[in-house]
Nucleic acid binder design. Structure first.
Lengths: 186, 186
DNA sequence: ACTACTTATTCAACGGATTGCGCAGCAACT
DNA sequence: AGTTGCTGCGCAATCCGTTGAATAAGTAGT
């Protein structure tokens, strides 16, 4: 319901094409909201119809033409209105966690395998986030305070996940060491 | 894409009605995947069409009739197949975080207000999760290992969030103490 | 008496999101 | 010579999800 607002937030700083936005959704904002290019183009179309944004057509040679969008006053008003009213709590949809909840059906080995895979991904993210955050440390993180805080959120999130993964590993190890009185097949 | 599998996981342990499942989605599984009753009834219908579940009709007096669903062999096969293949990484859609990213547009006060509200919610959740987890401690948390691990995930998640919220508060406080060279209005 | 909540299922309408495809040209690698 | 990848935009079909409502009878509270 608020892809539109995420787009407006991005357009606040600078004019951008749909393609530019898609890239940013894959990086910075992707941390908190992700979207594909189809959705973005569609939403830009709607925003344009409602004159929240406007664009100018830029012919390019060598590359395809593009449309550079910028936010309008109406768009900024809408954004501010949205910022004021409380956000709905995020709905959680974590397929991996559903697997954990149904873990009795699987063997530990395949759980551990996927745990490692997901862990690699998380650790990777953690590194990039930390790199970006320390870059902000060096220069000025007062101006980019909210970017910094967003990154911190991502960092703490990954760390919490990795910590949990360790707990899972040691719990599964303990369970295998002491062959318990649990039926292996019902 | 895997509400169906969450349902199948729940149906594994016991026969249940749509209504029962909806309640469980509001509690246990809701921690990692949430759904409204409309969705659940719809999905149960589809699962039934594909003979992943079957039901028996239970007439009741005093209360409305109900349908008790149970998982079939096909359903169990499908579930196991799904458990084996890697889960897609969860897509993140956190409206509140979008607000933080666009925080320059808002005053600190309204951010702090919403931070408190969200914090209350998180703290509440943390309490219920911890209560449930310690209940498992007392009896046997070997049998319910995966329930326990799911709860741990929820607990660590809330804690990480609350910790982040503290960081935000002190960062905003610091910013206000030293009136910085940041334009208040562009 | 009236209101509100619980149990139980379902329909209809809409909007948001995903998947898959198509076009188009240039650069770079194999 | 051929494949892959990047820049850039878009359509169509389908599916997933949300919102809102209807029905229906019992129980519990003010």
């Amino acid at each position: 319901m608020s892809l539109r607002h995420a787009i407006l937030v991005l357009l606040q700083d600078q004019e951008a094409s749909g393609y530019d936005l898609a890239r940013e959704f894959a990086n910075s904002i992707g941390l908190v909201w992700n979207a594909t290019h189809q959705q973005i183009y569609l939403e830009l179309g709607k925003l344009n119809d409602q004159s929240m944004v406007k664009y100018r057509h830029i012919p390019q040679d060598g590359k395809p033409d593009k449309k550079l969008y910028r936010i309008t006053d109406e768009g900024r008003d809408e954004l501010i209105r949205w910022l004021r009213k409380p956000a709905a709590p995020p709905r959680i949809r974590d397929a991996f966690m559903v697997k954990i909840a149904g873990g009795d059906l699987t063997d530990s080995a395949s759980i551990l395998r996927e745990l490692d895979d997901q862990g690699d991904l998380r650790r990777e993210r953690l590194n990039t986030f930390e790199a970006l955050a320390s870059k902000l440390d060096d220069t000025s993180r007062d101006r980019d305070l909210f970017t910094y805080l967003t990154l911190r959120r991502g960092i703490l999130d990954q760390q919490a996940w990795l910590h949990w993964a360790d707990e899972v590993r040691s719990a599964l190890k303990k369970r295998e060491e002491q062959p318990v009185a649990v039926p292996t097949s019902v």
